[in-house]
Design a protein around this nucleic acid. Structure first.
Lengths: 162, 162
DNA sequence: CCCTTATAGTACGGCGCCATACTAAAATCC
DNA sequence: GGATTTTAGTATGGCGCCGTACTATAAGGG
């Protein structure tokens, strides 16, 4: 059971006291935000004991299935962050001995990022564990309920809202 | 229509190729995360022209209905961040002339944060606009669909997942 | 072949967030 | 009433993220 965050509850109260329209869509929005940030927090908490953030875990995962490694800009694209952010994440992963930066033999602008042995082990262990955990979320919902929820989420976002 | 983030799509593909159980709950989880971060990004984008982050907006809003102001620790509690974070946000808001830090007349440890005139104007304008925007999200869903979605979200979170 | 443009990685500065640790002041407890 | 504990605000340092700007290299156009 997800509680709305205090700030959102306050916003909702104020809107309600002014009898503004769309109170229930606001509540819905805040419910989704609260659920997502609960998931994010739980995820971060699970990864912290391994010295990883969610982003670092994603990098390990992305590299896990690439024996030849990947250049930073490709990691940035696949992870959904900028190249500048990747630099910092790699600094940490390299410091912790999980990845190596190697020069590319043909394009001297590029680096090839690859997992170290320690990185491979950690990535392998965590993938299993993490996947099981994610799959365990929403286990209270049966298949039809999940299907309904998924469909509603698909329909939820208006095209022009961004 | 919300697309899964690349990183989540990759995770999903990998889980699928291994025929791991719970693929659809994973997809559901990633759908919610994608939707929430889309909302967060859109929100940030709407507030940026006013020189505000989402957190700063919340502070202005919280102070808007408190003519006597609030101390920082109370803002921290209501906004859902630590006192240390509030210090930084107030630094920015004070620099931009939106709030003032005043000493508390009875408890000399405390400060009283209050909106300036400019802060009141901005908070008033933005509250209307922002509320309308949030209420406009999910307008593609009719009332019964919103009700169903809300109920499913309520049921979604297992108690022991954190 | 040079000149321009695009790409790759990074440095730098800024924001938001936290944990930790510090100082001042209040509250509590003998 | 003096010592201890709690509370308030902040400083510091770290992480993750971004935009911007820089250097080196590659690719393309005349």
């Amino acid at each position: 059971m997800i509680e709305l965050e205090l700030k959102h509850a306050a916003l909702l109260r104020e809107a309600q006291s002014r009898a503004l329209p769309g109170i229930d869509t606001m509540r819905l929005c805040f419910q989704i935000l609260a659920l997502a940030s609960t998931i994010d927090r739980a995820c971060a908490q699970r990864l912290a004991p391994h010295g990883l953030s969610e982003s670092k875990f994603v990098l390990l995962f992305l590299l896990r299935s690439e024996p030849n490694g990947l250049p930073p800009h490709e990691l940035a694209h696949r992870a959904g962050v900028t190249r500048a952010t990747i630099t910092g994440l790699l600094d940490g992963l390299e410091r912790d001995g999980l990845v190596t930066r190697n020069p590319d033999s043909v394009d001297r602008r590029k680096l090839i990022i690859a997992l170290t042995e320690a990185g491979k082990v950690l990535a392998g262990d965590l993938f299993e564990e993490h996947t099981r955990w994610i799959a365990s979320l929403f286990q209270d919902l049966d298949a039809p309920a999940r299907q309904t929820l998924s469909t509603l989420l698909q329909r939820a976002w208006p095209e022009d809202a961004a």
